[in-house]
Amino acid sequence: MKPFVHVPLPTRVIFGRGRIAEAATEARRLGMARPMVVATPHQAASCEELARAVGGTAYPYAVMHTPVDVTEKAVAFVLENGIDGIVSLGGGSSTGLGKAIALRTDFNQLVIPTSYAGSEMTDILGETEGGLKTTRRDARIQPEAVIYDPDLLTTLPDAFAMTSGLNAIAHAVEGLFATDGNPIVSLMAEEGIRALAAALPKGHAGHDDALYGAWLCGSVLGSAAMALHHKLCHVLAGSFNLPHAETHAIVLPHATAYNATSAPEAMGRIARALGVKDAVDGLHSLSKAIGAPVALKNIGMPEDGLDKAADIAVSSPYPNPRPLERAAIRTLLHNAYHGLPADRG
């Protein structure tokens, strides 16, 4: 066995149906007397209800990809209203804004996810400014506590649940490729993929197991370095404003195929978790079975932006098992754009 270093995540996890009832107690445990409850406009009513429950102030203005100008407005609101903590309710957009505020204020965070995004378990923040999405890691970004309540997923649209679940699986897949991975990360990754792959086709009946899998996959993302998949998705989402979960769902089999010959052990674990012989085929079959989108052209990607995306992706690459080759990345993007089979070359 190779030497490794593993640092357990510091985030406290509360899991179970009905556990949102403990939000006020958890907020007080974190020292919040006047928290700001962050959500998207779509969840404004739930945001107001939770704000009343925790004795805080509702702020339902989070948007996709965490634009810096939106964060700056939120921080100004924080300073003007005596806010002393952040409670984020929702998916990646709400969690992202909460993290961005915490980075600038060092406030404690309580996150209550309503999707399978997984970002609540990481010290990673992706921010968008000037058409570019940049990421950073910082201890101030890591939420102090998370409440996972499957009851909150009952109104999650099936289509979004499927893409959100594939987004979570992507975290685990990359954890198996990670240059700083270790046996603990690999165990969490394989179990997270297994749980989600089994739960997603069940729809609402699979919410508990899917949320459990998303927690594990998010923990993997919080414990290991990102690679090609996340690099491409950050480029596509940040530069072309594509929807986050759908982008991850489409890119996943293509990025996995790109690394297939360079990471055989990871491929074996992915295949085993999916209960198939081939990891790439298994990911493609799962995506097809749950009705996830397969083509970037169908979620708003302009074809004339593929060259720009390839250029950005190779200009500052993340560590990856296979070196990032511009021509091969351009082919990958072409196939993902048109919904073609993944290229393993």
Rank of each mutant, 00 (worst) to 15 (best):
D208T: 14
L252D: 06
M267N: 09
V87F: 06
V70D: 06
H6F: 15
P323D: 10
S219N: 02
E246W: 01
T256R: 01
A255N: 00
I124P: 02
G85T: 08
H284T: 14
S115G: 10
A172K: 04
T154F: 13
T154L: 14
Y318C: 11
L332C: 05
V87R: 05
P143N: 00
K202V: 11
L125D: 03
P10I: 11
E246Y: 03
A45E: 15
P67A: 08
F15D: 08
N167P: 02
R272Q: 13
M301K: 10
L286Y: 09
A74W: 01
R137D: 01
K99G: 07
K202F: 04
L110G: 07
F15V: 12
G90N: 05
G282I: 04
R19Y: 12
E80C: 03
S315Y: 10
G339F: 13
S219C: 04
Y148G: 05
A279K: 02
L153N: 06
A172V: 05
C233Q: 06
I124W: 14
L103A: 13
Y212S: 07
N335H: 15
Y318H: 15
M32G: 12
A198D: 14
A310K: 05
A271V: 04
V185F: 01
S93F: 07
L200Y: 14
S316H: 15
S262P: 04
L340V: 05
G126A: 12
L176H: 06
A245P: 08
